[in-house]
Simulated scan of single mutants.
Amino acid sequence: MKADNYPFAQELILDTDGHIRKVVIDFNDYQRLVEAIEDEGLVRAMMEVKDETPLNLEAALTELEKQ
């Protein structure tokens, strides 16, 4: 397997059976991947609550105290 077949990969580290165990990537590419994953998580969280009624500060604090 060559790193050329994988986006962002600069080097593949294989085990004795030839399976990929680690991937070396540029730190800037890593940061962009992390940001993309975080953005996806934020979008999913927003979609989960999109139909909920917003609370004012007092009501939100009361809800938090219940937990």
Rank of each mutant, 00 (worst) to 15 (best):
D39F: 10
T62F: 05
L55M: 06
A9F: 07
L42F: 08
V43A: 13
P54L: 04
P54E: 07
L33Q: 12
K22F: 11
V23E: 03
G18C: 08
V24Q: 10
K66E: 09
E63I: 01
K50V: 10
V23M: 11
A45E: 14
M47H: 06
R21P: 00
G18V: 07
V34S: 00
L57Q: 13
N28R: 07
I20N: 06
T62P: 00
T16Q: 14
D17K: 15
P7N: 02
V49S: 04
Y30W: 15
I20F: 04
E48Q: 08
D26G: 12
A60G: 03
F8V: 07
N28H: 09
A9D: 09
R32K: 15
T16V: 12
A3M: 06
M47G: 03
A59G: 07
T53D: 11
N5S: 15
L12Y: 02
N56A: 00
Q31C: 04
V49Q: 03
Q10P: 02
L33S: 08
L57C: 09
D4L: 10
A36Q: 11
E11I: 05
T53F: 05
Q31I: 03
E52P: 00
D39Y: 09
A3C: 08
P7I: 03
T16D: 15
E63N: 04
A36H: 06
D29R: 03
E48T: 02
R44E: 14
T62A: 10
Q31A: 05
I25T: 02
D17S: 15
I13R: 10
D15W: 05
E58H: 05
K22I: 04
L42T: 11
V49F: 02
L42E: 12
D39C: 09
L61T: 08
N28Y: 06
R32F: 04
V43I: 14
V43M: 11
I13D: 07
R44P: 02
H19T: 12
E35S: 13
L61R: 12
I13N: 08
F27W: 06
P7S: 03
Q67R: 15
L42K: 13
A45D: 14
K2V: 10
F8G: 01
L33E: 12
Y30D: 09
E40K: 14
R32Y: 06
L55D: 02
L33F: 05
P54H: 02
K66W: 03
V24Y: 09
E52S: 05
L42Y: 09
I25R: 02
V49R: 05
A3V: 06
E48R: 09
L14Q: 05
N56Q: 01
E40W: 09
D26R: 15
D17N: 15
L64Q: 12
I37E: 13
N5Q: 15
A36W: 01
R32M: 11
T16R: 13
F27A: 07
G41Q: 01
L33D: 07
L12T: 01
E58W: 03
K50P: 01
V49K: 03
V43G: 02
Q31N: 12
M47A: 08
G18E: 08
D51A: 03
L57W: 10
E65Q: 13
F27S: 08
E52C: 05
K66R: 14
A45I: 08
V34K: 02
G41F: 00
G18P: 03
V23A: 07
E35H: 09
A9L: 09
T53I: 09
K2N: 15
Q10E: 15
A60Y: 11
L61P: 01
A59L: 08
H19Y: 13
